[in-house]
Design a protein around this nucleic acid. Sequence first.
DNA 1: TTGTAGGCGTTATCAA
DNA 2: TTGATAACGCCTACAA
Lengths: 333, 333
Amino acid sequence: MKKPTIKIIAKDAGVSEMTVSRVINNPELVSEATVKKVLKSMEKYNYKPKMIAKILKGRKSKTVGFLISSRQEFYISPFYGECIRSAATALKDFSLRTLSFNLLDTLSKSLFVDYANSGLLDGMIIFEGTFQEDITEVLRVNNIPFVYVGETFQENSDIVSISSDSYEGARKGMKYLINTGSKNICFVTGTGSKPSYIHRKQAYLDAISEANLEYQNVIETERSMMGGMLAAEKLIKQKEEINAVFCFCDVIAIGVIKRLQERGVTIPKEIRVLGFDNIPFAKYTTPALTTIAQDTEKMGMIAANSLLKLMFNEPLENTNIIVPTELIIREST
Amino acid sequence: MKKPTIKIIAKDAGVSEMTVSRVINNPELVSEATVKKVLKSMEKYNYKPKMIAKILKGRKSKTVGFLISSRQEFYISPFYGECIRSAATALKDFSLRTLSFNLLDTLSKSLFVDYANSGLLDGMIIFEGTFQEDITEVLRVNNIPFVYVGETFQENSDIVSISSDSYEGARKGMKYLINTGSKNICFVTGTGSKPSYIHRKQAYLDAISEANLEYQNVIETERSMMGGMLAAEKLIKQKEEINAVFCFCDVIAIGVIKRLQERGVTIPKEIRVLGFDNIPFAKYTTPALTTIAQDTEKMGMIAANSLLKLMFNEPLENTNIIVPTELIIREST
DNA sequence: TTGTAGGCGTTATCAA
DNA sequence: TTGATAACGCCTACAA
């Protein structure tokens, strides 16, 4: 059985196509009797309007896209789960549906570009790790508003970004480590030059300097559990002098803890480990991970609300939104 | 600047719209000089054909959708990460792009339905946990082939499903626990009546019966880390008699381990814990989790290849594909 | 309240 | 090798 079109329904109900269209989009303009008749025919044929035909006519898709990327061990960074979920929930109140694009390669990018060019996307939330000039260009050409979540923009201040207060969070963590007795603290971070890397590292350095500590050691590694393992290898050799390890993120911290334990180091007794993010798994490591929590749920909500303002042309007070963090003390320190 | 259409390009290049279309889709039918001319105009206007207009004309979208669902702590079950990735990789060889639909509520379902009805989807891979009659109905009406991954179909044998050998895997795990000295073994599982639940439970019962063990204890809980914690609470009260806990999945096992440790139980010395799945985190728990690995990468590949056969009308030998599992012994047992 | 005509951007079909 | 025409399914604008 062929798929029914508006034409079939119109004929079956004995009305014009326009009347059917009205029943779908503005039933209040049609007489009750006609509405009933048309609905019956639609039911009979199980008619579903084709979204792409509407869109071709210039209608909105009522869809917001998420741009995410996969890192090593995860299809979606565990950090973003809640963020995506809360953003989707906020958008739902405006009947906006959500769709995730995973940027893996040229092919997956072509899908996103096709969608953007086709009017299939009314708005976009771009997550940290997927920002690329050509993508924002595509969005701009198609007048698709977007916000950026998880990383700060320093120069392009016209881009709305929502991120955690990396510097303050890292300072909080360092202060805690120092105040509770750690002197030789190492910082394990990812490679790159994003603001979050820079801010957390600066916080680490400033904290050491202000406390007049002598030891200072930054290790760069891949941002993954395996990367944490590798970093821990290097740490082992310096075991005697290190009291604590401050990790750029929980995922790295998990790897650090694991490898240190495998090498016989007791955590936190010999070396304390501090993470950043507070991913769902953080409280299930042994010992449970002390970390600086990012309020991902709040970030998702703010991202959604900011995007909504952009979509509805409402004013936005601030394009650089910083969300506070919270130190969560568990057992690894 | 308005977005360029094929009409603009045609005018600019001094050819008909059809010729432009040919340059895009069948350049070999157009003279070299004309191709050059048209390409230049396309470049000049940065012209991108609108995918939805093509699709409205009956073209394929070259897109395969994934249907996934969120469970408690994870946006995407950690179990499916690799599976999705390997499926996407296999489909890529056929220039098929992939897109994930997260089935959260009616709204997100409406997006999927709209896409299916619009010809935006050429094929579908449905992951365990998202199977719903109305969804397969939508797919059938629109002639969209699909395969089901992660769970077996017993009755509807015309549906292609790819799943792990749950019974055999669980038997393997139980055999190992029993052969290495555990007598009082508890089974912590999820609630429901899916084949995987039934098969693993049956394997547990059969193993106990064949070994002539007396102790038998099945605890049902939510399929999450928190669910594992709750199950462990119940276990604590039976601490004296239990030697080992076999968990339906790693996610539950992680919660079980954590709560048992919090209550002072030493793992594996006092109680051994066995998982199922081998999610990426499994080797980072302390102690590292012994588990029955599902070959998710293989499952993803098979799913993709089976779907391709369906899409290309090639014969499929078997609709009920079972993938073997592997016991991975780590430290928790 | 309902209907007619035309077009959104592309391609299939046939003709030149 | 190229072009004219109609059509995909729906909706805007106007008319009745």
